[in-house]
Design a protein around this nucleic acid. Sequence first.
DNA 1: TAGTTTTCTGAAAATCGTTTTCAATATCGC
DNA 2: GCGATATTGAAAACGATTTTCAGAAAACTA
Lengths: 144, 144
Amino acid sequence: MDQIQVFNNYLSRKGLKTTSQRMIILETFLESDSHYSTEELYLKLRVEYPKIGYATVHRTLKLFAECGIAAERNFGDGQARFEPIHGEDHHDHLVCTECGLIIEFEEPQIEALQEAVAAAHNFTIANHRLELYGCCATCVAAGN
Amino acid sequence: MDQIQVFNNYLSRKGLKTTSQRMIILETFLESDSHYSTEELYLKLRVEYPKIGYATVHRTLKLFAECGIAAERNFGDGQARFEPIHGEDHHDHLVCTECGLIIEFEEPQIEALQEAVAAAHNFTIANHRLELYGCCATCVAAGN
DNA sequence: TAGTTTTCTGAAAATCGTTTTCAATATCGC
DNA sequence: GCGATATTGAAAACGATTTTCAGAAAACTA
């Protein structure tokens, strides 16, 4: 079941409606692999679909997060960011604090250790966030 | 060198002044091991020191973070939180999404793996954040 | 399909946490 | 103590997010 199906199922399950705006936003959102803030996605959409309002973009991104096809993240720049979840595999982020570059990575060993820590404290983990902040190779070379 | 010294050094190095408000806020902040938002600390201080304003609390917490005796964190509830840094050892957090309980933990193996991941991507890590969100034993038992 | 009900949309206003402004006050160096 | 400079507290400004509301669109009903 792909993301579009998941989203449509979610809509009908909740008695919500399928609208052209929601479909357009979903398409554009899935097309890219970048980490959109509401504003960024709104600006991108505005080029082709100037009628779509900021509030609708934001509400729709929240819907994506609710139905599980997007993850809401916050990298500390004061804006929430959303990224498509393409499968069940989880990934974390390397964030360059100089140029804003975001690299995704997966490290099963870290995940396993997290589970161990949680178990030691009798916690049941629902999700987690791991972000490594630093300087990417390019910025290091540039002397930043 | 304890935190009070670090803070005073920082103040004089930057040409800033030692005020009674700053000392009161620092004391109260260090006394507790909880993770204060500006508002929480402001409300706590207000009981004994009703003259201290919200802006001063906030500015002072920012100062703590600047001089390295506090860390600013964001657990996704929309409020920044500050916690005292008691030594050079780093720790991460388990956050109960039901009751708000925050448990600190350290896991050197995870830190080591993070370094390995960063090295593989030619990143130089300055800092990181790791938070595990879930349900604590008490809330699980309560059926949440 | 037309009519009815409900949800959705977009613009603007409201909200929330945070940050800044500004006049009065306090601290520091002399 | 004096003067220069930083700090304070209240209120206003700010930016991101959320809500409001009247008109538009979608889904349901018969």
